[in-house]
Design a protein around this nucleic acid. Structure first.
Lengths: 208, 208
DNA sequence: TAGATTGTTAATCGATTAACAATC
DNA sequence: TAGATTGTTAATCGATTAACAATC
């Protein structure tokens, strides 16, 4: 689909660029050079130019990048233009917070269903989103045409839930459970592990 | 303090190794080879051996690594042995979830105070942790000898709060606010941005 | 034209990995 | 001794960055 392989670090940085230029737009700025953008984000300006040219030529020599159009271009690259329906498995503290969190279920991602196996929680509504029995996963995913799953279950249940999701043809998973899970390579998996982040912080606090 | 510079990717991986061998210990496994550990985590075995030898010689040729002692060694490297007192600024959905989240405030990190500027929230207790007026930040940090701050305030307030924290001699910050904040270089900062993770997932879903 | 800044090449830097002597 | 696996070197791979022609 693409001519040249995009380096993983480039992909990791793109959303950061996107966030930064959105903020600049809000500040009323119209145009930005790679130099200025790099300064704000803390990366080399050549890096930014190179990252962007993997996807096209978005700047004007002597001028810089027009913010309005760069936003549109990066939106297209990231696929932000396409709406995506999302579910949450595990309506504990974190899951509930993410359900309530305005801004998590915003932009293109919409949480449309929640799941738990606790009978106390099943049937509840949180922010107008129904909590379903985990056993209905397959039915509801098909019914509501859901592509993405957020996993906020305890570590011990994570792999089982992920297996279930994979079986239901979910395309992407954002895993918050503090454990390594595996998926077939056609499924996109991203891990967000708060404990691991604390350990990394701990390392830096200890060794400096 | 260290002879050789430790590569950043090595530091990022160490907590992953730690998590994995903790789990193996729980499974009753006594010894592991770099080959087996690499297979579980999904990295090359030479990578693991190299990462570990930045810090010492922990294995035995022909045998592998003894899990019990490797855990102790990595704990020491990560500084997990040292208890650290932590606060949360911003008692919204996410902040409250983290306060309640058993396991976040476990191991060496203990949440000992929470802060907000909303009079409705100030004075409350969540999981036996008091919510203080943000203006008391300096006093309480000194009083309770707090080193680490978790920031869960809205994006627009993040930089101001971070500046306040820096002024109070906080040593490390875990920032959940979806915005780029800057700190002096002697302060350790880690960003966890859920929105950015969703954007990265979006990229992979769109381009594949 | 002069100044600014991109897109791109090529050099540099750094991280990963294959290979193997050391050794359990 | 034979087999396994580490620690470490050196080769490979890939990412970052300096430099500059193109061009606004």
């Amino acid at each position: 689909m693409k001519k040249e392989k995009i380096p993983q670090p480039t992909i990791e940085r793109l959303p950061i660029y996107y966030r930064c230029i959105l903020q600049m737009k809000a500040e009323g700025i119209r145009t930005v050079s790679s130099e200025e953008l790099g300064r704000r984000i803390g990366v080399n300006s050549a890096q930014i130019r190179k990252d962007l040219t993997y996807f096209g030529e978005f700047g004007r020599r002597g001028i810089g990048y027009e913010i309005e159009s760069l936003i549109e271009d990066i939106m297209r690259i990231l696929g932000v233009t396409q709406e995506r329906r999302m579910l949450i498995v595990g309506v504990g503290n974190l899951g509930t917070a993410l359900l309530r969190h305005r801004g998590f279920s915003k932009e293109q991602f919409h949480i449309v269903a929640a799941f738990d196996s606790d009978p106390e929680k099943i049937g509840q509504e949180i922010e107008e989103i129904s909590v379903y029995d985990l056993r209905l996963l397959d039915t509801i995913i098909k019914e509501k045409d859901i592509e993405v799953a957020v996993v906020t279950v305890p570590a011990k249940d994570a792999q089982r839930v992920v297996n279930q999701l994979v079986g239901c043809d979910i395309k992407g998973i954002l895993n918050f459970a503090p454990t390594q899970v595996t998926v077939p390579e056609n499924i996109k998996l991203r891990n967000v592990d708060l404990g691991v982040e604390l350990l990394r912080l701990s390392y830096h606090l200890t060794n400096s």
